[in-house]
Structures are given as C-alpha cells and as structure tokens.
Design a protein around this nucleic acid. Structure first.
Length: 169
DNA sequence: GCCAACGTTGGC
DNA sequence: GCCAACGTTGGC
C-alpha cells in the first residue's frame, strides 16, 4: 500500500486541489447542484494560465473549492470535484456565444473545459473576510491583491483548513 | 459604481 | 520585442 502510494506521488498521480471562481448571479454552487447529476461543464475560461491548469493538470476526482466572486459576500460555498478531464470548449466556435473566439476551431481548439460535479455544501459559506484572518491561508492566491486568476491550485493543507472552517460552527 | 491591478493587443 | 492603450476582473 505504501509502495502504491509512493508510486502515485512520484508519477504525479495523486489528487490535486483547486479553487474555481464563479459569479453566483451567473452560475452558483446551488445552480451546479440543480444540474442533472449535479454536473456541468466549466465553459468560458478565456485566460491561458487558467486554461493550462484545466488542460494539463486537472484530473478526474481532483477536489474543488467552489468560490463565489463579484457578489455581496465573496467566499467558498462548498466542495465539487472534477468529473471529466479537459476537452475542447465548443462555446468558442459559436458566433452567438458570449465566449466566441474566431481563433479557435474544432480542428485546432484554443480553449478547453472540464466537467465539474457538485459534492457537498458547507454548513455556511467560508467568506473571504474570515479567510484573511487565518494565518495558515495567507499564501492562497485568492487572498493576494490584484489576483484575478479564475482557476487556482490550492494545497491540501489549505483545502483541509477551509473544509474545517466550513463544516464547523 | 469606483477603480486598482492585471492580461492582451497592436503599432512601431 | 517594447510598451501604451484598452478591456476585464472583482473587492470594496
């Protein structure tokens, strides 16, 4: 068992942890729950760094902190997981889509998306405000000034800490 | 609604 | 390849 765990570590196959931002007015954590199977595709990412995380690093069963941005109480609403690894974001091909990009085509896709599955809610949202007060979370990108990246890696320690905050009183 | 900070674009 | 202008993000 230890050997197997080691192999996974060395091959980079161990589970990763992520933070994904969404504006709740557009697509909330509850909206995800309401989708068939609690699953939806994460379309519309048009930033290269965020795309690369999705395309190159996200694996099935990775866990996700679902973050509500640009709203009254920014913070983490609950847990989701990656249920399908990266595939072309077809909204880029649709001239009527908000996310249309003429530089992307089916034979040469520029943008990618993953499927995300609702896992469980917190008892309460873990707000940005309270995250700022926790020394263990100080390194998180989402707390850095001017940080706009909509998909960010988080450490297991950060992930666990936030789960505790969300599941506690 | 403001505006600082950022990523992207495009002229040179 | 520089960098100013622009559009967007997102906390406040």
């Amino acid at each position: 068992m230890i050997i197997l765990t080691l192999c996974y570590e060395i091959l980079g196959m161990s589970k990763k942890y992520w933070l994904m931002k969404s504006e709740p007015d557009v697509f909330s954590f509850d909206d995800l729950k309401a989708r068939p199977g609690g699953t939806d595709h994460w379309d519309g990412v048009r930033n290269f760094q965020a795309r690369n995380f999705m395309r190159d690093e996200m694996k099935k069963h990775d866990l996700v902190l679902f973050y509500h941005s640009n709203c009254k109480e920014p913070g983490i609403a609950g847990i989701a997981e990656i249920s399908k690894e990266a595939y072309p974001d077809y909204t880029a091909y649709d001239p009527k889509s908000l996310y249309f990009d003429p530089l992307s085509a089916p034979d040469k896709p520029r943008w990618f998306m993953v499927d995300v599955k609702w896992v469980k809610p917190f008892r309460r949202t873990v707000t940005l405000k309270e995250m700022r007060r926790v020394p263990e979370l100080r390194g998180m990108k989402v707390l850095q000034r001017g940080q706009r990246l909509s998909i960010q890696p988080v450490t297991k320690e950060e992930f666990d800490e936030i789960c505790e905050m969300g599941m506690g009183e």
